[in-house]
Computed example of a mutant assay.
Amino acid sequence: MRTWLATGHAEAGAVLRDRRLGRIFGPRTPEAEWDTFNWLHADSILDSEPPKHTRLRRLVAGAFGRGHVQRLAPRIEELAQGLLAQLPDGSFDVIEQYAEPLPVLVIAELLGVPEADRHLLRPWSQAIVRMYEVDRTPAEEAAARTAAGEFAAYVEELAAHRAKAPGEDLLTDLVQARDGSDRLSAHELVATAVLLLNAGHEASVNGFGNGLHSWLTAPARPAVDATDPAAVDRLVEEFLRHDSPLHLFERTAKEPTSVAGVELAPGDKVAALLGAANRDPAVFADPNRFDPTRDPNPHLAFGAGIHFCIGAPLARLELAISLRTLLGRHPRLEVVEAVQRPTFVLRGFERLVVSPAG
């Protein structure tokens, strides 16, 4: 990859926090073919640096700070209960039938995507995020370009409707978001909504599936009291640490920089390997053991520094509620079949078939 890799917790944390290292988006070429895909990234929080990043995050964080996340808690539980009620007796694929549809429904509700359109979101998202892997095919690249165009056009139309007919949703707040005379441009608005839709459920799906598999297959599986909110919160953090949903987050040196004793020249790339950092024995005792009582648990699953995941509170709330709801109905589950996706950067399961025990 021609990229320096930081594997330790301290080294990965230094990469994520060092302001001399930036998220520098390189447009894909030929730019005429990649136009929409390129601006969806160049105008997003994830792939911008100060002062643009500071401005975008301030506008978006203001919208997130209006109670959208906490007000969703009862609705998340209602959606989770509805999905569980549809499960067959006996074995079921917890990814396809529970972990995957729930975050899509939640982020769609948060942004105000009409129910009839929600089936479009996951395929668009999966096509786009496949571009973050290191072994893409030409067919996958073509699918990503198509998805980016369709996704952006859809959000543009929905945002235009919200501008005329505001609703009680985050997209309306993003349309209306202002800081003095400043507001999101048309491209920034669409890029932000697409990023929230993509990141808002990819991490949750993979975090849930990876963590559940880690827990259910752990030797002498440790029990967790699903009625204890604190115990469930600790379980969620161990889900995120033990088998992180995002394994690689890249930075580019903006100036001559020394990180962990390595000299970087402008343009050099360095990536934090979050999965490795979260198994660092210098920070986590017996790091390969799944321990739902682990406390403190300073994992880096949501990143660190100015690019720390803005949706982390929603992801944590969603994981806690979906876990508590699932365990309330099926307190003991056993893994029947587990099939991982052939990906590295965004790590997760294609299938995770479980069966209620006893």
Rank of each mutant, 00 (worst) to 15 (best):
A282N: 13
D169C: 13
F25R: 07
I76K: 02
Y132R: 14
L72W: 07
L5P: 00
L352N: 06
G328S: 12
G209E: 02
D182K: 09
G311A: 03
A139K: 02
E156S: 13
H187Y: 07
P229K: 11
R221F: 01
L333F: 07
T293D: 15
A139P: 00
P222F: 12
V336H: 11
L327P: 01
T343Y: 11
A6E: 11
L184M: 12
D291Q: 05
G211Q: 03
T257C: 05
T293C: 06
E31M: 08
R136E: 14
H187K: 15
T137S: 15
D179W: 05
E350S: 14
Y132C: 01
L158M: 14
A142Y: 00
K52D: 15
A301D: 06
T227L: 12
T36H: 03
E263P: 00
A315T: 11
Q86I: 01
V94E: 06
G305I: 10
I310W: 04
N206C: 06
I321D: 05
A203V: 09
R145I: 14
G358A: 15
F290R: 09
G267A: 05
K269A: 13
A99Q: 02
S322G: 05
R162L: 13
A6V: 10
R241V: 03
G275F: 11
H247Y: 06
L121P: 00
A73F: 02
I45R: 13
G8C: 09
P292W: 04
V15G: 12
R234G: 04
A191Q: 07
M131T: 14
F151P: 06
